[in-house]
Design a binder for these strands. Structure first.
Lengths: 140, 140
DNA sequence: TTTACTGCAAATCTTTTGCATCAAC
DNA sequence: GTTGATGCAAAAGATTTGCAGTAAA
């Protein structure tokens, strides 16, 4: 699997170098189903290409985040999760009992976003929000 | 300042010991304006009563959380914040630019809570949620 | 050739834990 | 007197950083 040309060209346009490490990291982020952690990205890259260091993963994520190419979500388990921005947004219902994560279409929070903007002049960044609680099973 | 009789009696009813450390920690949590971190609680307690250790603060917070006497909120700055449950709930609009935290009445999210419950069978725990974005000033 | 990027190891920072001692009940 | 709570120091775990060497442009 190759990384998307879009992200790659965006990087090189802005003068960033296209190193093999970056390409591999990009592939993994885009290839997975989202919600991937730095450690998982590292493990997947290292499996095929052992010449990577986890600090390179963190530095790459930092860069991609800054350029708005990936979004970062805290699902409450002590490590941050990443998702390619171009794949669209959704939210997460996280069960604090069993840990299941249910995806929630972004439209559900659209009204909230409106209210916050008009009533509080606050432009909420509801890209990949996590809402904690209990899923159907765990509430009996 | 003394801790509220309500929390104290709740603790002793359930067989927990009322140590001076716990009393001081309770006072600080109740005395402050909310959004206080473990480190801040520790600093305030230690100022008057040097015989405290930060691990006692963490253990006490853990206990109070488990008993539902304080709520825990992640305002995104790398440390968790605490608020006495009896003082009522509210949410937080956190500006990722300037760091300002705007309190949001819990009623604003009441409809969302309903939708999640009825459409997804998910009982969201919206006690002290943090929503990130840009405040009026920082969006120009 | 230039200098951005990487690997390595060590540091950072918050939170947790093992264990011996102490004190609330 | 019991045993739950504390202090201390060390561990844990995710993320960051300094620095010298390497390679993308």
């Amino acid at each position: 699997m190759k990384p998307s040309g879009k992200i790659v060209s965006r990087l090189s346009e802005q003068g960033y170098r296209l190193t093999p490490q970056r390409m591999m990291i990009l592939s993994v982020i885009e290839g997975g189903g989202g919600h991937i952690s730095a450690e998982e990205i590292y493990a997947q890259v290292a499996a095929k290409y052992p010449y990577v260091n986890i600090s390179t993963v963190y530095r790459t994520l930092e860069l991609l985040k800054r350029l708005g190419l990936v979004t970062e979500t805290d699902l409450g388990d002590g490590r941050l999760r990443y998702h390619p921005a171009e794949k669209g947004h959704h939210h997460h219902l996280v069960c604090t009992e069993c840990g299941v994560v249910i995806n929630l279409d972004e439209s559900v929070l659209a009204r909230l976003e409106d209210v916050l903007l008009h009533r509080y002049n606050f432009s909420a960044d509801l890209k990949h929000m996590a809402i904690f609680g209990r899923c159907a099973n765990c509430s009996e």
